[in-house]
Computed example of a mutant assay.
Amino acid sequence: MLLAFLAALAAAVLPLRAQEPGPAIQRPPGSPQAVGAGHTVRQIPEACTRLEGVFTGQAEAPYRLRSVATAPQCRPRARYVDATVARPSARGSWILNDLIRIPRAGCPGHEAVVKVWRKPAEQAPARDGQGRARVYLEEGRRQAGSGRLPALPQFSAQLELAGAGC
């Protein structure tokens, strides 16, 4: 009886697990990082943003993640939005773009897990006869003057801690 119940449960759960999409970018875990050593977690060139992380060694906040602008002359083609504001999830039309695992040096069971989410723009720009999306200077100025600028794609990142502290 118990075996039949477990088989029925597995048959119901496996299709649900198959529907959960994984990240668009597949990567192995990062190199172990020492406590206090700042490191780049991920660059998001479309949003002119770099995600930086550091293991703090503090019990209340063992890992700190922050976004940093890459260069003042960079022209963003997307926006980076803080996860507390954006609340990214698959139900909110966000796409899991990347899953980054950063183990702590000297404590391989403890790792920071950063989920990078992407939300596509509402509508793609129109394509010309060559199949390219082009924005011409005068057309762009007219759109900006009328306040009808197209929405930009968005990126956001969530931090989770996995494993036990050392």
Results as ranks from 00 to 15, higher is better:
R101M: 08
S146G: 04
C166L: 08
A12M: 05
V85D: 15
P32H: 09
S89I: 08
G145Y: 06
A86I: 03
T49V: 13
Q154E: 15
E139Y: 03
A61H: 12
H110P: 01
V116Q: 10
R127G: 07
C48F: 12
N97M: 12
R101P: 10
V81H: 07
A83E: 10
G92E: 15
R132P: 07
W117Q: 03
A10M: 01
R91D: 15
A12K: 02
L51G: 06
Y63K: 05
Y136E: 14
R64D: 12
L149Q: 12
P15Q: 02
W117T: 01
R64S: 15
K115A: 15
A162N: 14
Y63N: 08
L16K: 04
R64T: 12
I100V: 14
G165M: 12
P28A: 02
Q143R: 12
R27F: 00
V113I: 10
G145H: 04
G145W: 10
H110F: 14
P45Q: 09
P28F: 02
G163T: 06
A164G: 14
R87Y: 11
G109F: 04
S67G: 07
I95S: 05
E138G: 06
P62I: 07
R64E: 14
A124V: 10
C48A: 11
V135R: 07
Q123G: 07
T56K: 03
L159T: 06
H110M: 13
S156R: 03
P103Y: 07
R101E: 15
R42S: 11
S146A: 15
A18T: 07
G30N: 02
R79F: 05
P103C: 03
P62R: 04
T49Q: 08
Y80C: 01
L3S: 05
R127Q: 14
R134T: 13
R118K: 13
Q19N: 03
I102N: 02
R42W: 11
W117P: 04
T70V: 15
Q158T: 14
G30E: 12
Q43R: 14
R91M: 12
Q143K: 08
A162D: 14
Y63T: 06
A59F: 14
E139T: 09
P150I: 04
A86F: 07
R141K: 13
A34C: 01
R87W: 07
L2R: 00
N97I: 01
E52C: 02
R134Y: 08
A4T: 01
Q158L: 13
G36Y: 08
Q26L: 00
Q43P: 02
G165K: 08
G129W: 11
V81G: 01
S156C: 04
G106I: 01
L96R: 06
T49M: 11
G145V: 04
S67H: 10
V85T: 13
C107E: 11
C107H: 05
A34P: 00
P153D: 13
L14A: 10
P21F: 13
P15D: 08
V54D: 03
A112E: 10
K119D: 09
A12F: 03
E46S: 12
Q154N: 04
D128E: 08
